[in-house]
């Protein structure tokens, strides 16, 4: 009976999520000690608001990494769909904002499908596919905009309200983050396709034996990643009231970082969405804390690179440790 209880408890509170929560607590405490105004309710909601887009795109990245791939094109998809939606909004202010949102999202889906087709049916490795499309989509953004920006006064209020409006005192953007998280959590834990992603990433051959279609899953995950990036592209341009050609440049690293910090194995097959959300929040807090502790925002890139490397190091060492423990127990 003791067995059942411990195993069950372990499943509910996976180690990684708990230690991340503790880590986030310590981080908040440390920053607050230096800048007492940091840990207020208002600031907290600002950080969550800021992090919602990262959470959404990271979840898409999570699915791709879970299946053993990587999507380097998310930042470029955000830029292209955000630019396209903003230009549509600028050119046709009469079109309702939610239709523009839909258009931006569909563009993301299509770009994701292109990635998915190349990987699943063209047998091009995910890293090469998305390295290529990262450039292609970014270049397409420039070609589409002819190098121009869309700025706040060229956007309609209802467009900017997509993320900025609020419901029950909580901003729409946070609601979007919550909605996406809930839907994707359901997808990953309660649907057949969701579990099949775990199967593909965990053991390709075994997955084939039980009838999982690798092509279908690969196509699906890149499509989901595109969808979430497309949606986020619209949200991004509306939130910052600007569509520029460099939007979300380098953002792919942040999404990979959120996954790695959240305990997702970079080799695929293990990880869960709650960890990814906490990983994204952790990054969000750091990004917001930089100015508070008087570090210039130019440090952001360095710090993010450092955190990813460090988080991967922790993952690798803890995996090694676990393996050793297993061996110790197995036969002595």
């Amino acid at each position: 009976m003791h067995t059942n209880r411990t195993a069950a408890v372990k499943n509910i509170l996976r180690k990684r999520e708990v230690s991340l929560l503790v880590l986030i607590g310590v981080l908040l405490l440390a920053v607050t000690l230096r800048a007492p105004g940091f840990a207020t309710g208002q600031n907290a909601s600002r950080i969550i608001n800021d992090t919602s887009i990262l959470i959404m795109v990271s979840i898409g990245q999570f699915f791709v990494i879970l299946a053993g791939g990587i999507d380097l094109s998310v930042g470029s998809i955000i830029a292209f769909s955000g630019m396209a939606a903003s230009m549509l909004n600028q050119a046709q202010p009469g079109i309702p904002a939610f239709v523009v949102l839909l258009v931006g999202t569909v563009i993301g889906v299509l770009l994701g499908m292109l990635n998915g087709t190349l990987v699943a049916f063209g047998k091009v490795p995910a890293i090469i596919t998305t390295l290529g499309t990262m450039s292609i989509f970014r270049g397409m953004t420039f070609v589409l905009s002819k190098g121009q920006w869309v700025t706040a006064h060229e956007m309609t209020q209802s467009y900017m309200n997509l993320p900025h409006g609020n419901f029950l005192g909580v901003s729409n953007l946070i609601w979007w983050g919550v909605l996406v998280s809930a839907v994707m959590l359901t997808l990953s834990s309660y649907t057949k396709s969701g579990r099949e992603i775990y199967a593909i990433g965990g053991n390709r051959t075994a997955a084939k034996f039980v009838g999982v279609s690798e092509k279908k899953i690969q196509f699906m995950i890149f499509t989901i990643s595109g969808l979430l990036s497309g949606l986020s592209g619209v949200m991004w341009t509306a939130r910052y009231a600007a569509a520029v050609n460099e939007t979300a440049s380098g953002f792919e690293l942040q999404t990979v970082a959120a996954c790695v910090i959240g305990g997702v194995s970079i080799a695929g097959g293990s990880g869960a969405i709650p960890g990814v959300i906490l990983g994204a929040l952790f990054l969000g807090i750091i990004n917001n804390a930089l100015p508070v502790i008087n570090l210039s925002p130019f440090y952001q890139m360095f710090i993010q690179g450092f955190i990813v490397l460090f988080a991967m190091l922790i993952n690798t060492l803890s995996a090694r440790h676990n393996e050793k423990m297993l061996l110790n127990r197995r036969r002595q």
Binding site: F302, Q304, G305, F306, M312
Partner: peptide
Amino acid sequence: MPAIAVTLATQSLFRGISQA
């Protein structure tokens, strides 16, 4: 560690130093 993951991180780390 996988080469893609390591060099993705150092891509930011190295450029991050000069940017900082």
